[in-house]
């Protein structure tokens, strides 16, 4: 399924909704969205992943990039990720650096 992303950027919170499959092609689109908000005083990055059915390490790299680009104080919330994507986050230890939630605001 084709990748789609929608961004809603508020004063402190950027909310990105991801659909489809996130691979090294679509990760470029995801990264471009992160670059757009990188110089804004964002405190929380909310990634709605309910409709994301696949994520490769290219997607993980954008998560790492987000934290490095926006700053260590950035809180990353992942809303409703599918089980197999949670597995990937767990295997790579990234679940310690993000907060997995059922809804946001928590």
């Amino acid at each position: 399924m084709a990748f789609q992303i929608e961004s809603v950027v508020g004063e402190q919170v950027a909310r990105l909704t991801l659909h489809g499959e996130l691979d090294s092609l679509s990760a470029r689109v995801f990264q471009t969205e992160i670059e757009k908000i990188a110089n804004q005083p964002i405190e929380a990055l909310v990634l709605d992943m309910e409709d994301l059915s696949f994520m490769s390490s290219a997607g993980l790299r954008v998560l790492i990039y987000s934290k490095q680009k926006i700053g260590p104080k950035l809180a990353i919330y992942i809303v409703k990720p599918q089980e197999l994507i949670v597995d990937t986050l767990t295997k790579t230890g990234l679940q310690h650096s993000v907060t997995i939630v059922d809804q946001y605001p928590v």
């Binding site: 490769s56 998560l63 490095q68 990353i76 295997k91 790579t92 230890g93 993000v98």
Partner: peptide, 22 residues
Amino acid sequence: PDSGDLTKSLEDREIGGLGIYL
């Protein structure tokens, strides 16, 4: 990446190696 790398916080991570690990 070894267990030390995988427990690093995101800001200290090196980008790479995760794909082959998975």
